[in-house]
C-alpha cells in the first residue's frame, strides 16, 4: 500500500516537473500581459505585477475587430475540421487496411507531398488559386482539408495498421460489404485517432498564418492569427500588448481542448474491449 502511495507521489513529482517546462512560459505570458512597461523591463523579473493593468486587454480588444475575426476563424476552422474528419479516415483506411496492388509505393507519394517547403509551393499554388478565382475566399484555405492532408492520412494509416485483420475478416465472412466493414467495424475502433485529427486540424487552422496572409486581401475576411500579426509592427514589439493579444487568441482553443480531452480518456478505456 505504502509502496503504491510512493509510486503515486513519484508520478506526481515527475508530472509537475514536466508541467513546469510547458506551463511556466504560459504563466509568464499571462503575467507579462498584465504589466506596464516599467515592470516588463525589470531584472530580476517580478511574477505578480504590483500594478495589474487589465487595460492591456481592453487595448488589445480595441486594436482589432476581435469578434469579426473570431467569426471568420470559426468558419475556416470548422470547415477544416469537417473536411479532415471525413477525408483522413477514408483515405487512411485505403492505405492502411484495404489491400490493393502498389499500395505501399503509392503511399510514399503521400509522404513526398509533405516535403516541399512552402516557400517554393506558395507561388504556384497562389497562381492556381487566382486562375480559379479563389482569392479572398476561404476555398484555398479549406479545400485541401476535404481532399486529405498527408499528415492526417499518415496518422490514420498508422492506427488502422495496428488493428487486427481478423476483426475485419470475420465480418467479411459473415457477408458484410466493404463499406459496412469500414463504417461499422474499422472506424469505431480508431475513434481516438479521429478525435486527434479533429483537434490538430482545429489548432492548425486556428493558428495558420501564412495561408490567410497570402489568400485574404480584405480585412473583413481576416482571421485571428492575422489580427495577432498587427501587434508586431515594423518597429518591434510591445511585449505586454502582444502577450495580451496572444492570450485572447488561444482562449477558445483551450476551452475546446479541455472539452475534447475526455475523448482521449474514453479512447484508452476502449482498449480493454479490443485486446
Amino acid at each position: 500500500m505504502s509502496k503504491k502511495k510512493l509510486k503515486r507521489a513519484g508520478v506526481y513529482a515527475l508530472l509537475l516537473l514536466v508541467a513546469a517546462f510547458f506551463f511556466i512560459p504560459i504563466v509568464w505570458m499571462i503575467s507579462t500581459s498584465l504589466k506596464g512597461s516599467d515592470e516588463v523591463f525589470l531584472s530580476p523579473p517580478r511574477w505578480i505585477p504590483k500594478n495589474i493593468l487589465w487595460s492591456n486587454y481592453t487595448a488589445a480588444f480595441e486594436a482589432i475587430p476581435y469578434l469579426k475575426y473570431l467569426l471568420n476563424t470559426l468558419q475556416t476552422t470548422g470547415l477544416a475540421v469537417i473536411g479532415n474528419i471525413i477525408s483522413a479516415p477514408m483515405i487512411g483506411y485505403a492505405f492502411g487496411k484495404l489491400k490493393w496492388p502498389g499500395r505501399d509505393k503509392v503511399f510514399l507519394l503521400v509522404i513526398a507531398t509533405m516535403m516541399l517547403p512552402f516557400s517554393v509551393t506558395m507561388i504556384p499554388l497562389y497562381s492556381m488559386s487566382a486562375k480559379f478565382g479563389w482569392i479572398n475566399t476561404y476555398i484555398p484555405l479549406v479545400l485541401p482539408d476535404f481532399l486529405g492532408k498527408s499528415y492526417f492520412i499518415f496518422l490514420m494509416r498508422q492506427f488502422y495498421m495496428n488493428l487486427p485483420d481478423e476483426l475485419l475478416e470475420a465480418a467479411r465472412i459473415d457477408g458484410a460489404g466493404e463499406f459496412w466493414v469500414y463504417k461499422k467495424i474499422a472506424l469505431p475502433l480508431v475513434k481516438p485517432a479521429v478525435v486527434t485529427v479533429a483537434l490538430f486540424s482545429a489548432v492548425w487552422s486556428w493558428t495558420d498564418f501564412m495561408g490567410p496572409l497570402i489568400y485574404l486581401n480584405r480585412a473583413d475576411k481576416w482571421t485571428i492569427s492575422l489580427g495577432l500579426s498587427q501587434f508586431t509592427n515594423t518597429y518591434g514589439v510591445d511585449w505586454s500588448l502582444l502577450m495580451a493579444a496572444a492570450v485572447i487568441a488561444i482562449v477558445p482553443m483551450v476551452i475546446l481542448f479541455f472539452c475534447l480531452q475526455r475523448y482521449f480518456i474514453e479512447g484508452s478505456m476502449n482498449s480493454g474491449i479490443k485486446g
Partner: peptide, 27 residues
Amino acid sequence: MRKLTKAVSAVTALATVVSAGSIAVLA
C-alpha cells in the same frame, strides 16, 4: 463521433450566417 461532427457543423454554419450578415452591412 457523430455528435462531434454535428457540433462542429452547427458552429461553422452559425458563424457563416452571422458573418455573412455583417459583411452585407459592411459592403
